[in-house]
Design a protein around this nucleic acid. Structure first.
Length: 573
RNA sequence: GCUGGUGUAGCUCAAUCGGCAGAGCAGCUGAUUUGUAAUCAGCAGGUUGCUGGUUCGAUUCCGGUCACCAGCUCCA
């Protein structure tokens, strides 16, 4: 009896998909078809592209296969026979896969009815198990993820053990779309992107309030953690980018400009500016580590197809910092950064995962430097007892890195925080400090960001809270809602008192019914609404309504101020 | 950049086979003075993304282009 868990079920669903495609398109070449976190996919090389109507036909054929309840039979073949079988079936991608497997690898196949696929398994015991499934989309995907190779047709689907779970999942996806930061950004007047500036977002007044509050919190925490702040220019001459290595490794993503016949570049990263700032004078070992932060505006020419709301833009602000230190201080500084990032994310209630990325193909530096740097990161992670995923060959061109990934509303993960160890830049910029021996030494450097980019962080945060930001971050914290004209004077007094107490308050004096005013404040996700009528005016109270908890009753303004100050101070979620 | 899809009023969406481009919300004006998620009426709002072609006639069909959406690649 085959194992029967969700992963196996989805994997079997992908085989059923491939079987159905082969029945309808006998010339289709099969690539790979795994189960993934949210379902499954299969990649095909076919003459024509799949349309939504094709998906319906394929789905119908899959249902037939499910009804036919084929047993999944596993068998193994020696390499030569495995190759012969796949060649006979005219499956060149499978042949390539077999060639790339180790000589001594066991080559297992799964057979269901007339369909046979090279596959490690495991699978459900028969195709009848795939009762609750749905094909979701057809898209392009490069063979082996390599953009220089052929683009195949990928069909995505999902499968669950019951129809109820499938329906719940599909409903969840629909609900998640309502939390999309692009939609909320427009609805809540926070930010927007226009056709006139693809990838270049506009922040509107309310979005700026949120952004400024995040930056203020960031400055507070970084000052406390021993960081100093600088600001470096957005445009610097081209020679600098040759020196930093960006010309050789990052030119394709950079914007260039001319000034008085000289060649200049718009910065895609803040490090070279940071290097110049550090290198302007001599440093003593006594002054290290130096933690130099910069809210740096960078521009990168991302591919048009990669742009995505605030998540992926062409100009963004990194909450950057460069830490210059002695080799002995590496461990302590790495740990300090990881703890800082962890504390930040917890304030917002984020779950995250970490990835360690090692040396990429096109990189600077010696093997030894890379080994030392990578070991330092690995060791810091294990000392802190942190779990992480390994990404071979995914580091920056100047050093290995630890990335922190956060989830968006439909489960995609985005890199936000990153910590990169760099032996190259200090070398290239000939940075030094004077040690206790009176000699010059080369400092080691860490690049790091916590938010990653303010834009991406705001996008993730917006989806995380569905636009209902905690009180301390809400662009408008309180809506004052007088019932009629005769309550306006009292409402203005309350409004002024709250403003004087430091809150962001709006007074709604429009000639509308209270239900309408409340609805608008609710739709805008305003945390607190104060309803003011005869009763409140006579008693000198405010009737408090919370966006989530509803009517909280009438209390004196002073009491409300104390309560909200507490909520802001504790950054309550 | 690649594969597929989509562009109609500020927003959400209609418009039969190619035949005068419409609704709700938002906006403006007026009436209404209201007790915890939408008061009523009127007015205004458009070179159907842009551009070329086919046609007596194009939102509709074809080409190009721009932007957006999903995925791939890449990445904060």
């Amino acid at each position: 009896m085959a194992e029967f868990d969700l992963h196996s079920l989805r994997h079997t669903a992908s085989h059923v998909l491939a079987q159905a495609v082969l029945r309808l398109y006998p010339n289709a070449k099969l690539a790979i078809g795994p189960a993934i976190d949210t379902g499954f996919y299969y990649d095909f090389d076919v003459d024509t592209n799949f349309t939504p109507e094709d998906l319906e036909k394929i789905e119908a054929e899959m249902k037939v296969i499910v009804r036919e309840r084929y047993r999944l039979e596993r068998f193994e073949l020696p390499r030569a026979e495995a190759l012969a079988l796949m060649e006979e079936k005219n499956q060149p991608y499978k042949v390539e896969l077999i060639h790339d497997l180790p000589e001594d690898a066991a080559l297992s196949f799964y057979k269901q009815g007339e369909f046979v696929d090279l596959c490690a398994g495991p699978h459900a015991d028969h195709t009848g198990r795939v009762k609750a499934f749905k094909l979701l989309s057809a898209t392009g995907a490069y063979w082996r993820g390599d953009s220089s190779r052929k683009m195949l047709q990928r069909i995505y689907g999902t499968a669950f053990e019951s129809k109820e779970e499938l329906a719940a999942h599909l409903t969840m996806l629909e609900e998640a779309k309502k939390r999309d930061h692009r939609k909320l950004g427009r609805e809540l007047d926070l930010f927007d992107i226009y056709e006139e500036g693809p990838g270049f977002p506009f922040f509107l007044p309310r979005g700026m309030v949120l952004r400024n509050l995040l930056e203020a919190y960031w400055r507070e925490e970084h000052a406390a953690a021993g960081y100093q702040e600088i600001r470096t220019p957005i445009i610097l001459n081209e020679e600098l980018w040759h020196r930093s290595g960006h010309w050789d490794h990052y030119k394709n993503n950079m914007y260039f400009t001319k000034i008085d016949e000289g060649d200049f570049a718009v910065k895609p990263m803040n490090c070279p500016g940071g290097m110049l700032a550090f290198g302007r004078r001599m440093h003593s070992y006594r002054d290290l580590p130096q933690r130099i932060a910069e809210m740096g505006l960078v521009h990168r020419h991302e591919l048009s197809g990669a742009l995505h709301g605030l998540m992926r833009v062409r100009c963004f602000t990194q909450d950057d910092a460069h830490i210059f230190m002695t080799p002995e201080q590496i461990q302590q500084e790495i740990a300090g950064v990881i703890r800082l990032i962890d504390r930040f994310y917890k304030v917002f209630g984020f779950e995250y995962h970490m990835e360690l990325s090692t040396r990429p193909e096109n990189s600077m530096g010696t093997d030894e430097q890379w080994e030392t740097a990578t070991d330092a990161l690995r060791q810091a992670l294990s000392t802190l007892g942190m779990e992480y995923k390994l990404n071979e060959g995914d580091g920056a061109f100047y050093g290995p890195k630890i990335d922190f990934h956060l989830r968006d509303c439909i489960g995609r993960t985005w890199q936000c925080g990153t910590l990169q160890l760099d032996f190259q830049m200090p070398e290239r910029f000939d940075l030094s400090y004077v040690g206790p021996d009176g000699e010059k030494h080369r400092p080691v450097m860490i690049h790091r960001v916590v938010f990653g980019s303010i834009e991406r962080f705001i996008a993730i945060l917006t989806e995380h809270v569905a636009g209902a930001y905690p009180l301390w971050l809400s662009p408008v914290q309180i809506a004052v809602l007088p019932l009629t004209d005769r309550h306006h004077d009292y409402a203005r007094g309350v409004h002024q008192t709250l403003r004087d107490a430091g809150f962001r308050v709006e007074l709604d004096e429009r000639n509308e019914k209270i239900g309408f005013k409340i609805r608008e404040a609710q739709v805008q996700k305003t945390p607190y609404m104060l309803v003011l009528g005869d009763k409140e005016m006579e008693a000198g109270l405010v009737a408090v309504r919370h966006r989530r908890d509803g009517d909280l009753g009438a209390i004196p303004v002073d009491e409300l101020i104390a309560k909200l100050r507490e909520e802001v101070a504790t950054k309550a979620k």
